[in-house]
């Protein structure tokens, strides 16, 4: 469980901006955060990461205190085991893609680096420096680098803002797949509600430093039952593959990005979230 109860204020040009948040989240989920510009979304991520300090309050993760103003505890950012995907990607320009991933690791694990490069289809640019890559490619490297750290928490700050819809969906597919594979808690900040609802288990809406709404995503209910559904049809298009399942006489359609390495075949019984 992540428990966060914080207050922070900033002096603006004409007024005082105050943030006051009190939230609890289960571990292992994807939490989507949205809200207008200046709502405090990025600040919340930076406070969780330890890059900024609240004025008062506490942050606990899995019974470990990361920040407590009353007992002056503030775990340094480097000790929180957090993967952070910055808006500008923050890839080290002097290092190749592989070197960026290896540098991020506290204990070098070339096997994981190779796996991430393969899973995220980055083999062709393994030895290329980031400046030579497109925005979408850099985004994938930044995501892979954050995961190469084997983080407990993965924080993504507006990662899809500069991407076209097709590329955005592709990266959302990667994110979902990586989340299922490595089971980490993900905080995803985005203006794009459509993207958030596609991947998030919970949605948090902020405005002016306060939570205005907190709800479960309509697409992935919190208390998920699982069922074995039979794949009866695949409708493939350029961007998406629509998988049609049947369970107890009911049809369930699951749309996924076309390029995900899914090897389901008609007639397979697949475990799906249900309810």
């Amino acid at each position: 469980m992540i428990k966060l109860d914080i207050e922070k204020s900033f002096k603006g040009t004409s007024s005082l901006w105050e943030m006051a948040l009190s939230c609890n989240w289960d571990l292992g989920r994807i939490i989507g955060i949205s809200g207008p510009s200046g709502a405090g979304k990025s600040t919340l991520l930076r406070i969780i990461a330890g890059l900024e300090q609240p004025d008062q309050g506490h942050i606990m993760i899995d019974n470990q205190v990361w920040y407590d103003s009353t007992s002056s505890i503030n775990t340094p950012a480097g000790k929180r085991n957090i993967g952070f995907v910055f808006q500008d990607y923050a890839l080290f320009p002097n290092m190749t893609v592989q070197q960026n991933l290896l540098f991020a690791q506290k204990v070098k694990d070339i096997r994981l680096v190779n796996e991430l490069i393969e899973v995220m289809e980055m083999e062709a640019w393994r030895d290329i420096k980031p400046q030579l890559l497109s925005g979408g490619q850099q985004q994938r490297v930044a995501l892979a680098r954050a995961i190469a750290m084997k983080p407990d928490l993965l924080l993504l700050d507006e990662p899809f803002s500069a991407l076209d819809p097709a590329l955005r969906d592709r990266l959302l597919g990667y994110l979902k797949m990586l989340h299922q594979k490595y089971r980490m808690t993900i905080f995803l900040v985005s203006h794009d509600l459509d993207s958030l609802t596609k991947v998030s288990d919970q949605l948090l809406f902020l405005d002016n430093g306060k939570v205005t709404s907190q709800q479960n995503s309509p697409f992935t209910p919190i208390k998920t039952k699982r069922c074995l559904a039979k794949l009866i049809k695949i409708n493939a298009s350029e961007d998406h593959s629509a998988f049609v399942f049947e369970f107890e006489g009911e049809r369930i359609e699951l749309k996924l990005p076309a390029n995900l390495p899914i090897k389901w075949q008609i007639g397979d019984n697949i475990e799906l979230p249900y309810g």
Partner: peptide
Amino acid sequence: EAARLMDK
């Protein structure tokens, strides 16, 4: 900040 988070 990225390097800081990597505990370098």
